[in-house]
Design a protein around this nucleic acid. Structure first.
Lengths: 206, 206
DNA sequence: AATATTTTTAATCGTTTGATTAATTTTTTA
DNA sequence: TAAAAAATTAATCAAACGATTAAAAATATT
């Protein structure tokens, strides 16, 4: 039977996974030490291997969970049959910015780690269908056929849209260094973008 | 006197630096082994320390050169007093895309490495003045005062502009994996953006 | 309560990695 | 050409690191 301290987030296994998440997200796989993770989790180093066998297996687990969270959360928005194309754009921008606000290390983490073995990591999470069979894409195509937006490549559109959302977080250290922005000022700037990005994107499409 | 084989790019020192550039750019500091660099350069491992003292000193050197190249090359464009604001936008987009085409690993390299110690690395290259005291920014301000473009934040504008250019390269592994694009198709898509980005940016500004 | 199972710890192993050393080869200087 | 200096190599060191082991502690089972 489960004892009180052995459930949910308080279990040792979850503590290690959460710590691994934090450390991996911040430093990446290569720069993360299993000892860092153990210390962050407040457990003995051997326990990490007891529960997860190896650093790499633990990493893959974290990566899958991260990708699932990161792409799963949009899936709900872009596949909602109740909302219009324009509404999706607004919800997508605001929802994604909120998500990244909570976990600002994720974008750079995903981009830099996937570069090493892209297919091996990505095949475990089906992102392709999430995006290309989405209601969002159907509505994009319809809008184009009806002449509501210019004739354009969906890939360009997605690159632009996601780029406008994600890039400031990836470039944050650089931006702060060259602009002298404080953390609070940066956050305010990003907050503004929730409303601005949909406006910009619509301007680009027409 | 200089012997033939001890000049310019053929010198051992330059061979090591070039190899370090390649390896660091592709894998980042933490995942790069000094032995990898030595092998890439075709030299004995000890020579690396003989010329550069340590892995970290070699890295800082590569980083400074990379930043200088990456931000210096724009400096010429955005400070040219002979070109208009619109011309600068076109040249900036095309020039930067060409630069990154030649060295596609640089953006992700800079972003991920700077995250660790931003100020320490960035203080060695004065990017701030390059951007904020540029003719480009003056022309942006003038255009706004003259009502040629909407009232807007220069930081948003720069984030958007640079993001549109750089983000596809950062997200390349992800994009290729989820879209199934070949290398050639990806390159063609990017090539299109040289002309499209100025159009988009202008649409966003008005 | 006694036994079995699971969880946790301290100690340590073997490998990798950055760096050094001492010897050798090559180049420069005198 | 001989001596000095610089460049290069093989061997090795010490620390860091991922992983394992054997014992101890905690929990579950009977």
């Amino acid at each position: 039977m489960d004892s009180f301290k052995n459930t949910a987030d308080s279990s040792t296994e979850e503590k290690i996974k959460a710590a691994a998440r934090t450390v991996f997200h911040k430093k990446g796989f290569a720069a993360s030490r299993t000892r860092d993770i153990a210390e962050e989790a407040g457990i003995n180093l051997a326990l990490l291997n007891y529960y997860f066998r190896s650093k790499e297996k633990l990493f893959v687990l974290v990566m899958i969970e991260t990708l699932t969270e990161f792409f799963g959360s949009v899936s709900v928005i872009i596949n909602n049959p109740e909302t219009t194309f324009e509404e999706k754009i607004e919800q997508f921008a605001a929802g994604y910015i909120d998500l990244i606000f909570r976990e600002p290390d994720i974008p750079l983490f995903i981009m830099s780690e996937i570069r090493n073995n892209p297919e091996q990591l990505l095949q475990k999470v089906d992102i392709r269908n999430t995006v290309f069979n989405s209601v969002f894409m159907q509505q994009f195509t319809e809008a184009m056929q009806q002449g509501k937006i210019k004739d354009q490549n969906f890939l360009h559109f997605m690159m632009n849209f996601v780029g406008l959302i994600v890039f400031p977080f990836i470039g944050k250290p650089l931006l702060k260094a060259i602009s002298g922005l404080t953390e609070e000022q940066f956050n305010m700037l990003i907050e503004e973008r929730k409303k601005l990005i949909p406006v910009w994107i619509k301007a680009m499409m027409n």
